[in-house]
Amino acid sequence: MAVVLLTGFEPFDGAARNPSADAVNAVLDDYDGPHDLVVATLPVAFDASARRLRALIERHCPDVVIATGLAGGSSHIALERIGVNLIDARIPDNDGAQPVDVPSEVGGPAARFSTLPVKRLVDELIAEGLPARLSLSAGAYVCNHVLYTALGAIGTDAIAGFVHLPWSTGTAPADAPHLAETQLARAVRLVVDHALDTETEEPGGSIW
Rank of each mutant, 00 (worst) to 15 (best):
P62H: 04
A50T: 06
V84W: 10
H76V: 11
G73F: 13
D88G: 02
D36T: 12
I82R: 05
G73L: 12
I82L: 15
G33S: 15
L86K: 08
L56P: 03
R59F: 07
A40W: 02
V38N: 10
E80N: 06
A89L: 09
H60L: 01
E80W: 14
E58C: 08
D63A: 11
H60V: 02
R90M: 01
N85F: 13
L70M: 00
E80V: 02
R52Y: 01
G69F: 08
P43D: 05
I57D: 04
L86D: 02
A48S: 08
R59M: 00
H35V: 02
V38R: 14
A45T: 11
R52K: 14
S74D: 11
P34S: 05
A67D: 08
V44T: 14
G83V: 08
V64A: 11
R54S: 12
D47S: 10
L86V: 08
P62C: 03
D88F: 02
H76F: 15
D88S: 06
A55Q: 15
L53S: 01
P43F: 10
I82H: 05
T41S: 07
G73Q: 12
V39I: 03
V44N: 12
A71E: 03
T68D: 13
L37V: 03
G69K: 03
V38A: 11
I77M: 04
A48R: 04
L86Y: 05
I91M: 14
V38F: 12
P92D: 10
A40D: 02
A89C: 06
A55H: 14
F46I: 01
T41I: 04
P34E: 03
D32K: 14
L42S: 04
C61Y: 09
G73D: 14
A40P: 00
P43M: 06
L56F: 13
R52F: 01
I66G: 03
F46A: 00
A55P: 09
G72Y: 02
S75Y: 12
V39C: 12
D88E: 12
L53M: 13
R59V: 08
R81D: 04
I91S: 12
D47R: 09
L79V: 09
D88K: 01
F46E: 07
A71R: 14
G83R: 07
D88Y: 09
V65I: 07
S75M: 06
S74Q: 07
D36I: 03
A40Y: 00
P62I: 00
I87W: 10
L86P: 07
I87S: 01
F46M: 01
V44D: 07
L70F: 07
H35I: 01
C61E: 14
D36P: 00
V65F: 15
I66K: 02
A89W: 11
A78N: 13
R81T: 04
T68K: 10
A71V: 11
R54G: 06
L79Y: 09
I87L: 13
P92Y: 10
V44C: 08
P43S: 04
R51D: 15
I87H: 10
L42Y: 06
V39D: 02
R90E: 01
H35C: 03
L70Y: 12
D47F: 05
A50P: 00
A55N: 12
H60S: 08
F46R: 00
I57G: 09
V38T: 04
I82E: 04
I82N: 06
A48M: 02
G69D: 06
S74A: 14
D63N: 08
R90S: 05
